[in-house]
Amino acid sequence: MKKLLLVLLLVASQPQAWAQKPKIVASDKSGWHKIGETTVDYKTETDEILVIGANRFKSLQVKVTTATVNLESINISFDKGENQSVAIGKEIKAPGESRIIDLTGTGERNVKKVVFKYKTLSTAGDSNKKARVELWGLKT
Rank of each mutant, 00 (worst) to 15 (best):
K112E: 07
S30D: 14
V11K: 13
L121C: 05
N70F: 09
S59G: 05
T123Y: 09
S27A: 05
L4T: 12
I88N: 00
K3W: 07
D47A: 12
V11E: 10
A26S: 11
Q20G: 09
G125W: 02
E48I: 11
T140G: 14
I101N: 02
V111S: 00
V51F: 06
I88R: 04
A12P: 01
G96C: 00
K2Q: 10
Q14W: 12
A17F: 15
E45H: 11
N128M: 14
R132Y: 08
L9I: 14
A12Q: 10
L10G: 09
N128A: 15
K21F: 10
D102T: 15
T68M: 03
L9W: 12
V69D: 03
D41I: 04
G125F: 03
K93I: 09
L4I: 13
P15Y: 04
T123A: 10
F116G: 01
K117F: 09
E91V: 15
K23L: 11
E37T: 08
F78C: 00
Q20H: 12
K2V: 13
E91L: 06
I100T: 09
D79A: 15
L6V: 15
T123Q: 13
K34T: 12
R56L: 09
V11L: 13
I35A: 01
A67W: 06
K90L: 05
T65P: 04
T140S: 15
A19S: 14
E108L: 09
L103R: 03
K119Q: 10
T39G: 07
I88E: 01
V62Q: 02
S127F: 13
T68D: 06
V40R: 01
R99A: 15
K130P: 11
S85Q: 12
M1F: 14
